[in-house]
Design a protein around this nucleic acid. Structure first.
Lengths: 246, 246
DNA sequence: AGCTCATGTGAACGACCTTTACATGAGCCG
DNA sequence: CGGCTCATGTAAAGGTCGTTCACATGAGCT
């Protein structure tokens, strides 16, 4: 199966044609396998079928390749969070929790990106573009928090949206880092990371005075075009947000 | 200032006498400086004044040194959390929050340990002793959560202590990872990581039905030996747990 | 057809990790 | 005290990496 070097070269000619992209893909695979620490520039070059020096025509050094991947990761992250938020449809709380699940899903399904973004040890502010991409992703959470904060029950002081966003981010990140990745996922838990985060966010929102039970989907009925955002439910889901304690 | 090799050797003789400990200390310093990724076995050996092969008499390989440090870190972590918890004195909620602050303080003040424990990428379950030490540290949080859960207000379903512990752990870990370490700490925040976590935990506890304002310390009065644990305060601190929104 | 410049090669350097054969000397036993 | 032994150190060597440099190739423009 494995081509010898000459055959491979013969097949693609002296110039690769798309080496930059090939290197990014190779690195992504290697990071997924062995983590950002175990990934080597030389391996990526081998996998793309070029010499060890070739990558330097496309990346200043190994770190720049890594941070390119992190940046791409933040872009995909932002796009998934945005899709999950779906501009707050069908209602703010439901959409908000969907964002939380999307956070965990990303950590689970894109371990290579997540690793490069959060666990590779590269400084966020090394690259301006990287930092900007990271901020755009956070802004999705922040915008969602703004909408949520605007729904704060009357009579209570309105929580600062920025603080809410940071809180939610820290919860999602904490759960993802501790329980939803690689070996850490092997810790035995009484519930899935998704359930854990969902309960955590629900309890938190209740602590802010939100009524967090969503109305059951009306069968066959379309959701109203502009759902009346006044919380409609009564109080607490039976058994609390964590389900029935046995 | 820097001894030449022969002089150093002359001073300490052929045998170092305490190399294992010296290597651990050297590694700790190097990790604090350059992160677990940037730390090298050879550097630690140099710093201890021995050849590059000497460390292999005390550690199977570089990873074993790293995991020794992580293990030591978990032990110190446990001891600091235990001290902060102080068996729930003067009252459970106060002590609980002190544990949260201790978590952040550890991340801030012992970056080398924290790095080895949580950011070095070494699998937690590689080493049985390491895993055990990690679990002992978590058990401090868990025990505190048990006590807290026992105080759940009557009439509401009692939250599972294990879940509470996991929630608090994820919050502390999320805040520490995102905002309280190295470059990440440079993200501009509307409040300090400590305040952020404290508000987060308070809101969470309120969401569970706890009354989280502590009584003001009676001036000059000793705290009662066994504080009556029935929540004594009335409701919400003025302005909510996050202080006055401006 | 010929030029140019982006892109790839091979060789080389120094640093690191790790293994192997050998050196040293501290502690014990007679 | 003399000698043995074994834990602990050293030097040397092999393999991998990251990185640089002089040089080769050929795609695309003139």
């Amino acid at each position: 199966m494995s081509w010898r070097k000459e055959e491979r070269r013969a097949e693609r000619g002296y110039h690769h044609g798309n080496l930059k992209e090939a290197l990014l893909q190779a690195a992504l695979g290697l990071i997924a396998e062995k983590g950002a620490a175990g990934f080597t520039f030389a391996d990526a070059a081998r996998m793309a079928g070029v010499s060890a020096a070739a990558p330097y025509r496309h990346f200043r050094d190994r770190d720049e390749l890594l941070s390119s991947i992190a940046q791409r990761g933040f872009e995909q992250f932002e796009s998934r969070l945005t899709a999950a938020w779906d501009d707050g449809r069908p209602d703010t709380v439901t959409a908000f929790e969907r964002v939380g699940r999307a956070y965990l899903a990303f950590a689970r399904e894109e371990p290579a990106f997540y690793n490069a973004m959060f666990e590779s040890g590269l400084p966020v502010d090394a690259n301006a573009a990287l930092q900007a991409a990271s901020e755009r992703a956070f802004n999705v959470i922040r915008a969602a928090a703004e909408r949520l904060a605007a729904l704060a029950p009357p009579g209570t002081p309105r929580p600062p949206a920025m603080m809410m966003a940071l809180h939610i981010w820290s919860m999602a990140h904490g759960v993802a880092s501790l329980f939803s990745r690689g070996d850490a996922a092997r810790r035995k838990l009484p519930m899935s990371p998704d359930e854990l985060l969902e309960a955590e966010v629900l309890i938190y929102l209740r602590g802010l005075g939100f009524t967090t039970d969503r109305r059951p989907p009306a069968k066959g009925a379309e959701p109203p075009p502009v759902p009346p955002e006044a919380p409609s439910g009564s109080s607490v889901p039976p058994g609390g947000p964590w389900g029935k304690p046995k």
